[in-house]
Each structure stands twice: as structure tokens, then as C-alpha cells.
Design a protein around this nucleic acid. Sequence first.
DNA 1: CACGTTTTCGGGAACGTTTGCACACTTTTT
DNA 2: AAAAAGTGTGCAAACGTTCCCGAAAACGTG
Lengths: 344, 344
Amino acid sequence: MRFETSTIKDIAKALGLSTSTVSRALRDRYEISEETKKLVLAYAEKVNYRANPIARSLKERRSYSIGIIVSEIANNFFSQVINGIEAIAYDRGYHVIISQSHESYKQEKLNVEHLASRSIDGLLIALSSETQDIDYLRNLYGKGLPIVFFDRVPEDFETHKVIANNFKGAFDATEHLILSGKRTIAHLTNSENLSITRERLKGYQAALAKYNIGFEPELVKYCQHGGMHSAELEQAVKELLPLNPDGIFISSDRLTTGCIMAMKKTNPGVAHKIAIAGFTNSNLVELFSPSLTSVKQPAFEMGQVATELLISMIEAKRPVTEFETKVLDTELVRMQKPLGNRFL
Amino acid sequence: MRFETSTIKDIAKALGLSTSTVSRALRDRYEISEETKKLVLAYAEKVNYRANPIARSLKERRSYSIGIIVSEIANNFFSQVINGIEAIAYDRGYHVIISQSHESYKQEKLNVEHLASRSIDGLLIALSSETQDIDYLRNLYGKGLPIVFFDRVPEDFETHKVIANNFKGAFDATEHLILSGKRTIAHLTNSENLSITRERLKGYQAALAKYNIGFEPELVKYCQHGGMHSAELEQAVKELLPLNPDGIFISSDRLTTGCIMAMKKTNPGVAHKIAIAGFTNSNLVELFSPSLTSVKQPAFEMGQVATELLISMIEAKRPVTEFETKVLDTELVRMQKPLGNRFL
DNA sequence: CACGTTTTCGGGAACGTTTGCACACTTTTT
DNA sequence: AAAAAGTGTGCAAACGTTCCCGAAAACGTG
């Protein structure tokens, strides 16, 4: 803000004290007498003094801000994560700067470096579906920037991570389809680069195995761009439908909604015949037709936990060397009984 | 970032120049010889020099950041607006700090003041549904903080504003219901505090008038919290249904989805019998059941335009005195033919 | 050659904080 | 009574920039 605002100097002058005394009084340091503290506090209150965070940052060499990278904020899951992040961050006196990678590696790298040059104190990141090379992150991390990964995490990076129990979420969803009598279950998923893709695939396979259903690789379709392009989704659906699946397990938020949309567009009839189970944090699933069984991730909590870990790293006196990977349970929300047809 | 990074001083020392010369060379000022400039630039490039934005901000008394206040980011409309804002802001070298009011006046005020103390250069805000008193904004504005309102704007505040053509959007939606043969058209809307509420009500009334349908005040239900609480919505729906409307026009994104949800919950049968038209920017409307006619706002564009106006204010040499209110057209997306029932 | 101009550069203050150190004064200890 | 310890405060440097001002060098011009 370029407009006039009272500074510590003004207070010092007005009260006939030195800036150091005022500063210390404001920070409630032990060296200052109660009397002076009260005086300063009262006056500061009166003139509505607000410490200039920029000057503070320059002096303390930190900005009290943390960067967030997600693929997009217009996404139920991520916007809920962000809410969790904000809840903790604001509480602890940090503000957050959000950037979107739009599932592009280039954009992600650009944004991270922009944030780093903006003097963030720490970074919270879910990798883009394109990302394979995370050396630029390793570099920043090596220079001292605390980083916590969430949701989409790299395997070979020693730091805190927060993820959902993707294996179990996928297992539950697939098992649910099997228990509903489905046998030919397709799997639509994200880029192979992503940890979530691999973990969810394993869950899917494990469920099939448990019920002695053979794993058919051609029933698995990968979307390199995470469903950002509708053409990609339509292509996948077109390839999948001829295999006549009676169920489909979809592995991410955007993919789930995008896939249903693509199925309706490609072949509206079949969309209602295939049982759908998918990861999504949409709070509108009850409105969807066809309806589906959804795997909900504890997004808000994930944001909270990740932020707490990050702040603990930022505020640690000495370098952290013990890292943990928190795994949060997902929730299976079973499809509503379709009581719809009599009303159409 | 607290980790070591090269400064202008380091460059100066290494090159045997003064900091002023280096600074000027970096900023490409005319006083510096081409030769020296090249030397400095080359060295800066070599050591990967990045100007410290915090020091810069302190010196220049501005932060190159703009604040955004929306009611929530987990909202199709707002997240799209934010995308538009970011597109322009990043392009012009600003970064954005997003805050959510959650439709609470208290939270809104708190966030705005937090942002202001964080030295934002300007503010982009859509008022919360609770907000009536905007004196605190007037105060900040008076002190020199540029503010641009979008979507939910106050009437008595002289500054740039960007809104959708709410009157026409509401008119079109209502007319569409009328032309579909509906005669008892309810209207579910936001808090009366909001500009969008008033404008959309007028559009609704105008459409009724055009077709000689009497306006029935009891068919209009207001939601003070903009549908943040589901109880509020269910209450409204419970009051509305006994009046036997055959159509309903809903006035905002969250309200539209929330209302359908509430109708399905309260009386699933009737949900499919009432024709629905509502404002929403959800990209999933095609998935909804019951399906609906939607009024889409040019959210992305709204963000872009608002940001351009704000930046023009921020960068204006002298105080801006000519303000404009940009009105952007909405788009009516007609309900899909329900080809659904034969597939259920 | 003496003078003004232009070009190119450096010194140093300033932005608003925080903090190590020194200093003065009071109280306690030996 | 002198020394030590404790208490409260101020001075000044520092964080990394930008920019005003002055000065040295190079260049005409008469």
C-alpha cells in the first residue's frame, strides 16, 4: 500500500522513545518495562498501527507466505484441499499464494520458480500429470526451501508427504463394482507418471485378484493430460466401449465427470448400462445421471495436515531429517438407488 | 526465501562496480553504457540473479500483488473468474492473493483488512451476501487503495465495476420457462443485499410482465446466506413447493445446485416435474438430473476485464476520476431434450 | 586552450523493521 | 564500600533495493 500509514518511527517520535524500544514493546520482549509496553501498545492501538510486513520480511528474510501448486482450482478436490490449507495457514499467520499448473510441466516449473523468487517460505505441491523431472524442485529444496507434497507425490524425494489411501480407495470401489455383479471392469486413469495412478491401479488389480477376475491390460486407459482436453477423454471412451465393459472404475475427479460426459456424448444409451465408480470430491454427485459410486478423499483434512507439516519444517530451528508420509482414508459413497425413472 | 542467493551487491563487488550502476544496468537505464550493461547482464545471467521482490517492494512502496475476495473458491463461477484474473495479473507481473468470505461480512472485512496490511496494490472484490456496510472499503479506498468490484457490486461507490447483464440473463431464463408453457414460476434468490439479487429480480418481473403473468411476491424466496447452509435451502424449498409452481428460476450458482439437491431430498417426485432455469457456471450441467436450463456468466472474461481495470488504476499516474461499469452478456444454455428415460 | 556539455558512474540516503551491543541506573552480593 | 548483577533504554547496522545528487572523464566548440 503506497498510502500513508503510521510506522514504528512515528510512534517513537510521538512518545519520545527510540524505535528499538517501540519495536521491542510491540513484540512484547522481556527487556521492556510493563509501563512502557502499555504506553506503546495503547498508542499503537490508537493510531491503528500495523507493522509493515514487507519491511519485516526483508529484515527477517522470510515472507510469511506459502506457495501452493495445484493443477487447477476449478476442481472440487483441489479447492477443498486449498480450503484446508488456508484454514491452518491463516491461523498461523501465513498467507497463501495459489498457482495453477493446468497439468503442464512447463507451467508448473515456471510457477514454482516464480513463487520461489517471490520469497515464499515453503511450498505445497501436487505434481502435474506431465511432470517426470523434478530436479528443479530438488534444486530449490537443496537451497533450503521446505517442500511438502500432497496427493500427487514423487517416490524418490525425501520430505513430508500427505496422500489418500489410494490403494484402499481403488480397491473398495472396484470391489463394490464386483459385488454388484460386474465382471468386465474397465479402468480409466491418469498419466502413468503420477503416484496416484500407480497406487490406484494396484488397488484395482488387487480387487480383481481377490475375486479371481483376470486382469486385462487393454481395459485400462491412460489419459496423459488428466482429462484437461475433452478429445482425450472421448478417444479413451471410444476405445473402451467396444470391449463391452459392464463396469468402469475411474481414477480422478476431473476424469470421472469428464468420462461420464464423454460416454453420454458418444453413446448415451450405454452410459446408463455401465456401472460407474470413481474418485471424485464433487458435492453434486447426487445430481448426476447416470448416478455413480464415488470415492471421496479427505481433501480438507489433507490440506490441513500438509500445511501443518510444512509450517513445522519452516519453523524448525534446525534442518528436519525425519520425514513422514501421512496416509488418509478415503470414503466410499455408494450409488443412490435410482428411484428416478418413474419421474421422467 | 532465507537461503543464499546473489544480490546486486554481490554483482557489484564481483565486477568492481557500484550497486547503483548495477541496479541501473539491470533496469536498462539510459545513463549506463552499452558495454557495462552487457557486462552486468551477462554476469547476472551467469549467477542466475533474481531481484529480491521484497526489497523492491519496500523501496517502491508497492507489492505487485493484488487481493481477491470471493465468497468461496469451490464454486464454478468464482473459480472461473479467478482464472481470468490470474491470466491477466501474471501477465502483467502481479501475483494474486485469494481470500474467501464464505458469505460472512465479518470474515470479509477481516480478510480485506488483512490483505490491506499485507500491502496489496489493489483489491478485486465480490461482496458477501451478508454485507451491507461498506464503509470499511470506502475508508481504504479513501486512503488510496484501488478497488474494483465485480459480480456483486455496491450501488453507491464510485469506482470501476464489472458485472454480467443480470437483468437480461434473468429475463431470458424466465422467458424461456414461460415459452415452455409454465405459468406459475417461482424465484429462488440470494440475499436482498446483493446487487445481483435486485437486478435479476427485475429481469424476472419484466419477463412475467411481458407475458401478462401477475407477479406473486410469495413465489419469491430469499436465502440470506446464499445457500451456504443446506437447511436454509430446504426451508425455502419446503415453503415453495406447496404453492405448486410449474417452473422455477434460480438466481445463483450455489443456489441452483443446492436447490435441486434440496428438491430431490424433500420431494424427489416433484423435482422432475418442475422446469428449472438457473444461473450456474457449472460445466457439469449436462450430467444433472433433473436437467435444467442454465444462464452462464462470462466468468473468465469478467475476471480479465476487472483485472485490467484494476491494474489501470494502480498504474495510473494521477488519481482516476472517470469510472466505468462494464456489463457483460450472459448466455442461455437450453435444457437438453431428456432422452434419458429409455435408458434407466 | 579554456570552457560548457554530455556521458558514465559512484556515494549515500531511504523504505520500515529487528537486534546486537553499549550505556546508565538501580539493586543485590561480597 | 566496592563489585557484581539486573533492568530499561538508545544507537546504529543490517536486510536488498532504488534514485537523487554530485563528480570524473570524454567530448565538442569557440
